[in-house]
Design a protein around this nucleic acid. Structure first.
Length: 636
RNA sequence: CGGAGCGUAGCUCAGCCCGGUAGAGCGCCAGCUUUGGGAGCUGGAUGCCGCAGGUUCAAAUCCUGUCGCUCCGACCA
């Protein structure tokens, strides 16, 4: 359940302000999301020490403070050139991360605090939802993965898993996920239906040998995630467990404060019967989210369904005709040349699916959704045929493939959208030629129909009369109904009330801790730096006194520093004797939600300057008032 | 996996074509001045020019190999 990649990557670059989502105001689900806050979900003002590389929740009062003169994580005025996105660049500039190798980062102290806070929110919500924390090994034996049948796929086929031999010659891997280990644990634990349900989670470092690590923590080879696994006696139990986790994920997203959406998703390599992704909305997101402008429907584009505009058809079939049109590749020029609407054209894409060749037809105004095709065929790999192979199969250059006259071994499947048309166009399998006035039944047999098109913005909603809108999203969480895929393969069974052996029904629930931090920054920054929310900021208050060469002011600042800690407020104290510009520049970059400034001016007036990171201007307040405001903000 | 680019000071980069004792800005150190949004002046430190071979009187520069990092990638039919 690592937030997995898709091929849909198109990034807008550069720094930008926080983005709002155009559809949010009108979307009932967005309102629901916002209203989901419940009382009693206060974030503890604590962070934990790190043990064995994991984020734990131990509470250390002395972790409420830091003098910046002693802090590790210097800021950089210029961004290292490798940074491609705002979050990556800002994390490097702010001294939150350092790259160790491709896709591998050290989490420096300030980020470590944020990761702990995110982990604690997750921990609390998992516990609230009835899940129990444990910790499984990152180092796992090959045998378990062979038992589930995933070894080959994860190593040789996809190569996503780090695997190696130890000194005795046995093969191990670094876990990208933990279905195997957890199923092994639970199959020793469960004997009876009375032992169910069970749900466990862990917060742990995971490893994926990404083809292309990118964007800092967004797509790293080593990262921290929370994964949970539920075991139930039957499908109804799974539904309940899944629903509890879904609610917990909503609470996590709301407590952190994201603008986000939960969407229907493809289950991908993990398998299973249903899944939802939690998407943080940001223009630089790698995923495309489709959502209805009238109802609650929302889906990842990978999974999304849609209706197409229907047009009036010709009354009578006309005679099929082969038309010469030189170099007409692309449906728009083709339609213009043939003087037909684009919806009458047909794209026929030739794929190699494992060892069979498949032609996929979609209406000319649509594209193929390769994930839908892969799922339909049940194949492991799906690749567009090479130009040479297309020539061999169709006898034509790329661009003129059509369903008529293909070799018999080519399996033809077609999106529903190509059906129901009278007198449509398709390629003639002859360079520079297209067939027009083609009709199913008469000119060619009916192909296998299915949903194979890529849903897109502007298409009709599959559930109501609304239209789909699109937004970019960062997948931070993905929850799955696994069913019995792993429990059956690994013999995780129990006796039901009739004494009959049954297989446990599983769900798995992942959320990326390090990615959540990156996604937050991607969604919440300006041209000066990060804008943390009080819930996950490394410190709630950044104390930035000026004129520290003045002993009186230093004493006042030290006193305020102590006072804030006594009040239970986390404070980063910039006790460095640097100039105002540098001090404020660093404060903006680091992004603590509240800045407190003392100087000659404020001390003489008995005030302190209180500034929210999100507001341009500060307020001058008596210290007591400032403390009250801080508490009000942080306790909210 | 395929293609391309880049490894020179802590950071950003110039120098490489056309071989001849290593450069700039920022940062760092010292002193003076300055002191509410990255200040000024003066002086100073800092480099296995990724690594290994080769060519040459001489290599950051040319050649070969290697390691690392980054970017791009199936004419959407």
């Amino acid at each position: 359940m690592a937030p997995s990649g898709s091929g849909l990557t198109s990034l807008t670059r550069g720094l930008g302000g926080p983005r709002s989502w155009p559809g949010a105001r009108r979307c009932p689900r967005a309102l629901l999301n916002q209203q989901f806050h419940s009382p009693g979900t206060r974030v503890p003002a604590t962070t934990g020490a790190c043990q064995s590389g994991q984020l734990d929740g131990s509470h250390r009062p002395d972790h409420r403070r830091m003098r910046q003169s002693r802090h590790v994580g210097r800021t950089l005025r210029e961004a290292p050139k490798d940074a491609q996105t705002a979050a990556h660049s800002l994390m490097l500039r702010a001294g939150y991360i350092q790259q160790v190798s491709a896709g591998v980062y050290s989490y420096l102290p300030l980020l470590h605090r944020t990761l702990n806070k995110i982990a604690n929110i997750i921990r609390e919500e998992m516990t609230r939802a009835g899940s129990e924390e444990l910790l499984m090994p990152a180092l796992q034996p090959r045998e378990l993965w062979e038992e589930s049948g995933r070894w080959e796929r994860y190593t040789a086929v996809d190569g996503i898993m780090f695997a190696f031999k130890d000194r005795r010659g046995s093969t191990s891997c670094l876990g990208p996920t933990h279905e195997e280990v957890v199923t092994d644990i639970l199959r020793r634990e469960i004997n009876s239906y009375k032992d169910l349900p069970k749900c466990v989670f862990q917060i742990q470092t995971k490893f994926r040998d990404e083809i292309r690590p990118r964007f800092g923590l967004m797509r790293a080879r080593e990262f921290i995630m929370k994964d949970a696994y539920s075991f139930d006696a039957d499908d109804a139990g799974l539904e309940a467990s899944y629903e509890a986790m879904r609610q917990a994920y909503h609470r996590i997203c709301q407590r952190v404060g994201y603008k986000y959406r939960a969407v229907e998703a493809d289950s991908g390599a993990i398998g299973g019967s249903g899944s939802s992704e939690f998407m943080v909305l940001a223009d630089t997101g790698e995923e495309t989210v489709l959502f209805c402008d009238q109802c609650d429907y929302a889906a990842n584009q990978e999974k999304g369904e849609s209706g197409l505009e229907q047009f009036e058809q010709d009354a009578e079939p006309a005679a099929m005709e082969e038309v010469f049109g030189e170099g007409l590749i692309g449906v728009v020029p083709l339609a213009r040349f043939l003087k037909i609407p684009v919806w009458k054209t047909t794209k026929t894409m030739i794929y190699e699916a494992d060892d069979q060749t498949v032609a996929v037809m979609v209406r000319g105004d649509c594209d193929v959704n390769e994930i839908k095709v892969t799922n339909f065929l049940g194949c492991k790999s799906l690749k567009l045929a090479t130009p040479e192979r297309i020539k061999e199969l169709t006898g034509a250059e790329v661009g003129y493939a059509g369903p008529i006259g293909l070799p018999v071994e080519v399996r033809v499947i077609a999106d529903h959208g190509v059906n129901g048309r009278v007198n449509f166009e398709c390629g003639a399998n002859k360079t520079n030629y297209h067939n027009i006035n083609v009709n199913f039944g008469r000119d060619l047999p009916l192909p296998e129909f299915g949903d194979f098109k890529l849903a897109k913005e502007g298409d009709g909603c599959p559930h109501c009369a609304g239209n789909l809108q699109a937004a970019r999203g960062i997948e931070i969480g993905h929850i799955f109904k696994l069913g019995t895929k792993y429990s059956a393969a690994m013999n995780c069974t129990f006796l039901d009330s009739n004494g009959k052996t049954q297989t446990a029904v599983m769900g798995c629930y992942g959320i990326g801790v390090t990615r959540m931090a990156a996604a937050w920054i991607e969604q919440n920054h300006d041209d000066k730096g990060i804008l943390w929310s009080p819930q996950i900021a490394p410190y709630q208050v950044h104390l930035t006194p000026l004129n520290l060469e003045d002993d009186h002011i230093r004493a006042e600042a030290d006193a305020l520093y102590e006072r804030l800690q006594k009040e239970g407020i986390e404070v980063l104290y910039d006790d460095r004797a640097i100039r105002a510009g540098e001090k404020f520049g660093d404060a903006d970059l680091l992004g603590m939600p509240i800045r407190l400034t003392m100087s000659k001016r404020t001390v003489e007036a008995g005030n302190v300057e209180f500034k929210l990171r999100t507001e341009p201007k500060p307020d001058l307040l008596p210290v007591e008032d400032a403390i009250a405001r801080i508490k009000a903000i942080c306790d909210r």
